[in-house]
């Protein structure tokens, strides 16, 4: 019979380092998924996964079984991912633009996928959405991702971001408002 997470944690704390491997194997996929959605970059997400499990191991003594290990490591990963995003913020970013202006760090990308009107519209929505997502603060963006894409409750978002539930709710609301505003130009009827 497979040991549950709490039993494994106790084994690790009793000196069985290798037992931790079972927890890593069990929770890596979900941690990667959340990390990728927050960082938006595969390599960064891989790094976040490693860092989260390393931090988790180092803080394992502070783990209390009130919440499951999965939830606990997920919170650590969200924090690591947020740190990563903040770290990358200072790095150079390039925007895709119709008329590239190198001084504004804009580049042009060749479009090889000419398609029907619907494809064009959804591409337009995606572009507007991407711009709006960049306009969100790290907390708003993460709160929205956890709510909309990861199906996490307000309480879980608050715990993951170490903020009050009301602040988490407000962060989701502000994010939705901004995103809806960004999609508004597409709703204008002639």
């Amino acid at each position: 019979m497979e040991a549950n997470d709490d039993q494994i944690v106790r084994a690790v704390l009793a000196g069985d380092k290798d037992a931790y491997g079972a927890l890593v194997v069990r929770h890596s996929q979900s941690v990667f998924r959340a990390a990728f959605r927050i960082t938006g970059d595969e390599a960064d997400a891989d790094e976040v996964v490693q860092e989260a499990f390393m931090r988790g191991y180092q803080r394992l003594e502070s783990f209390e079984s009130r919440s499951g290990f999965g939830t606990w490591i997920y919170r650590i990963a969200i924090n690591c991912a947020l740190n990563m995003v903040n770290k990358r913020k200072s790095a150079t970013t390039y925007q895709i633009a119709e008329d590239a202006d190198p001084t504004q760090q804009q580049v042009q990308i060749a479009d090889h996928t000419a398609g029907p009107e619907r494809t064009l519209l959804s591409r337009e929505i995606e572009a507007l959405q991407a711009t709006a997502m960049r306009g969100l603060t790290a907390t708003e963006r993460t709160a929205f991702i956890l709510r909309h894409m990861e199906d996490r409750s307000t309480a879980e978002i608050a715990a993951a971001l170490s903020i009050a539930p009301n602040a988490a709710k407000q962060a989701v609301f502000r994010a939705v408002q901004k995103l809806r505003r960004s999609l508004a130009p597409l709703r204008v009827t002639p």
């Binding site: 890593v24 194997v25 069990r26 890596s28 996929q29 490693q50 390393m54 191991y57 394992l60």
Partner: peptide, 17 residues
């Protein structure tokens, strides 16, 4: 993937006494 992650960090972790 999980195993790869574990292989990547295993060497950096010290066993709890």
């Amino acid at each position: 993937y999980g195993q790869q992650v574990w292989d990547g960090i295993r060497g950096s972790l010290r066993a709890y006494p």
